[in-house]
Design a binder for these strands. Sequence first.
DNA 1: TTTGTTATGTTATAATATAACATTATGACT
DNA 2: AGTCATAATGTTATATTATAACATAACAAA
Lengths: 165, 165
Amino acid sequence: MSFTDAENTTFDAFPKPTHDHSQCVKDALAKALAICQGRGARFTELRKQVFELVCASHKPIGAYDILDTFQKRGRKTAPPTIYRALDFLLEQGLIHRIASLNAYIGCDFPQEPHRGQFVICKLCGEATELVSHTIEKCIASAAEKLDFQVQSRVIEILGICSACQ
Amino acid sequence: MSFTDAENTTFDAFPKPTHDHSQCVKDALAKALAICQGRGARFTELRKQVFELVCASHKPIGAYDILDTFQKRGRKTAPPTIYRALDFLLEQGLIHRIASLNAYIGCDFPQEPHRGQFVICKLCGEATELVSHTIEKCIASAAEKLDFQVQSRVIEILGICSACQ
DNA sequence: TTTGTTATGTTATAATATAACATTATGACT
DNA sequence: AGTCATAATGTTATATTATAACATAACAAA
């Protein structure tokens, strides 16, 4: 469920505990598969499994948490295997990296090319994604004045979510 | 030299190679000292030296680069010493941490409480600080809709600066 | 079915950061 | 000045995150 506010920011609500999460993961998987197929990119079993783990919650997850899960499942896995899968998913825009947490989260708008902007609860860890065109405009304006070519952005807002207050 | 654009963003120009950097460092030191004195916070010799190293360039600097410099100067220093000094400077708002680079940079507006927003050149490493009230407004608006209490923000724009294009 | 390419496995190590405890310096109070 | 509590720094060890380098396996195109 997405909203748009007066500042022209589109955002998801924080995921409700009641939402049908298994359906939500299924949808994300289907989208991811379709996107990769459309680009001739290989959504391999490994990449799919890593993607599933990232999407398993709406909280950013660490690479080593993913690694641990693989190992607990009896699969002998080393860090590069996980990092390479994450790199692939990042390149395809299927997940985002949260720099302030060294963690990864599924992208809510994988179809459209965009930059992730995140609101993250420090207590429960839940995160939601914004796409604010106003922020984009601000950045573009300042960049223009500075004659700066923007390549990537990191926008992360940390605090306490509604449910945790 | 600061500017304000149509989007109500205040920003420094990228530091000119011609600027009087030793004066710039002196000013920063004087400001830092005054701020700490005003708060009864101790701007010790160690903290001052770390601050000087962070301010020595307008590029974000890594904790281990600071550590190396201390060690090259013949001072036996371990990581916690540096990290604690950095933590103090962060708390006092005298420096900022650049999450996307795991590095630290002097704050250009230490007097006023604010959140750093950064534009960083991937080639030369030079960085400049923005204070965009429009971005703040955007974030506040989205946060209000989400009933989210903002505690901190990470806003980092990466790309190629004018001089490096 | 070869063959070049891409993906994954494997080992080692780099880079960043903190925990835990010991020691030293400082400032406030007598 | 001397005591004391607190804050700062020193020290050792280790946790956490990420990548380099090279080997093997899977795949896709001809």
